[in-house]
Each structure stands twice: as C-alpha cells, then as structure tokens.
C-alpha cells in the first residue's frame, strides 16, 4: 500500500503538505540522514533535523529517534542520551498523544527514558548482527502499521549488538494482551521459530508500542528498506502509516 495520492496533488518528489517530522540528532546518531532522506525524498513530506541540545518540538507532528551510537553507547545503550535536553520535549510530545518512533538506538533510548517498557541487552550470540530479517506485522491497527495488513511479512535489515528485548513476565503478558507487540521476528514464510529470532528477544519481539499506541520502538531499520533500488521497500510502510494516520486525524 502507498500513501501516494492522499494529498490529492499527485505523486512526485515535490514536498507536499502533511505531517512534519523531526529527526533528533544526538552525538553518535548515524541513521539520521537515512531517515530524513526517506521522509523528504521518498515520501515527499517535510522533515527537519533537531539537535539534541534543543528544547522545543513545537510545530512538529512526528518525532523520530534514529539509529546510531548516541554518546558512544557509554554505560548502557541510550543511558546518557535519555538525559539530553531535547528529551523533555520528546516526553511532552508523547504525552500529548503525538507519535514518536524510535529505531534501533532510538528504541534503546525510549526504553531508558521509560517511554517504553523493558530494555535491550546484548544479543545472545554476543555478535553485532547486520543482516536482513523477516518481520511479521502483528497489529496493523496503529499509527505506525496502518499501511500494512496484519500477518504481512516484511524484509527489513537489523544492525545491532544490543537488540535482545527483555522485560519482566507481567509486562510481557500485558504487552501480549494489549496487542502492543507490533512486529515479531519470523522466518520468510511468516512462521515463528527459534531460528528466526536473531538476538534472543523475549517473544521474538522486534517492535513494541506504549499503551496509547503513539510511541513505537523497533530494532529493525525501516529507513534502510524504503526503496526497491536499495534491496527492499518493505519498511516504507512505517513512514506511510504515520502520514496516513496524521491525515486521518486532520
């Protein structure tokens, strides 16, 4: 599915109106340019970088915390970034019910900031994993997944050393009961197998939302899989969903 045409002004590279995206840059972010490129040049929607020292996110509809190694991953992934000046504004943005998307290191930061439950620890293999994985869309009724259909299998790359999602048993049950697991690692046929879980995550969880479904953290990189010419466009739906849901609200 595509968000093309929702503006009624046809497709094309010209920047259309629509939700304005903020891509937060921390020292050590390295997927910020990819995210901005996809939003601006693939989706044709407005997007700006916001430096971590800033304190204001006024005028932005969607906040993206990109992948990377913020503050060198010192102490724990996301542990220092969580206290960056911009994070108060990110928290306020989330509290207003507006969407926040954390990708990879962004997911780790959101967990450290307690905007999402659980934490991400070292992969069971102890290896940094950089490869395509298959993901199953577990809930397509959210602002991050509405351009997909439930059960759809996506091919999106991961690139992380600390991507093993863990939480306590009660939290896991709550996440499952509330359908807050939006993406799970599966095999190419969409089946949940031990081999298809690359990092040892509980419940093969690849992406998880908060209770209001306006904050999502995911380890795979949809911004690296948003153009066919780069190998896969399966990740584009995450950004298209955000545009579609913003249009629906407006």
């Amino acid at each position: 599915m595509s968000a093309q045409g929702t503006s009624g002004r046809g497709s094309g590279p010209a920047v259309r109106r629509g939700p304005k995206f903020a891509v937060i840059r921390f020292p050590g972010s390295n997927c910020d340019q990819d995210a901005l490129h996809v939003i601006r040049n693939v989706l044709g929607r407005p997007a700006e970088y916001v430096w971590h020292r800033e304190r204001d996110l006024q005028g932005f509809d969607v906040v993206v915390l990109p992948g990377g190694f913020s503050y060198g991953d010192y102490l724990r992934t996301g542990a220092v970034a969580r206290f960056a000046p911009i994070m108060d504004a990110v928290r306020a943005h989330a509290e207003r019910g507006k969407p926040v998307l954390g990708i990879c290191n962004g997911f780790q930061i959101l967990c450290e900031a307690h905007l999402l439950p659980g934490a991400l620890v070292r992969n069971t293999s102890c290896r940094f994993l950089c490869k395509y994985v298959s993901l199953r869309v577990e809930n397509a009724d959210t602002p991050f997944t509405c351009a997909y259909s439930e059960g759809q299998v996506l091919r999106i790359p991961i690139a992380h050393g600390e991507g093993r999602y863990v939480c306590d048993e009660a939290t896991l049950q709550e996440l499952e009961a509330q359908r807050r697991v939006l993406f799970r690692y599966v095999n190419a046929r969409g089946e949940l197998t031990p081999e298809s879980n690359p990092n040892g995550s509980m419940g093969s969880i690849a992406g998880v939302a908060n209770a209001r479904f306006n904050v999502l953290g995911m380890m795979p990189h949809p911004e690296r899989a948003s153009e066919k010419i780069l190998g896969s466009a399966d990740g584009r739906g995450v950004f298209e969903s955000l545009v579609l849901s913003a249009v629906a609200v407006a």
Partner: peptide, 8 residues
Amino acid sequence: RLLANPVI
C-alpha cells in the same frame, strides 16, 4: 537514575 537500569 543513571548508573544502573533497575529494569535489568
């Protein structure tokens, strides 16, 4: 607050 993550 910082040195440990009480979740894990």
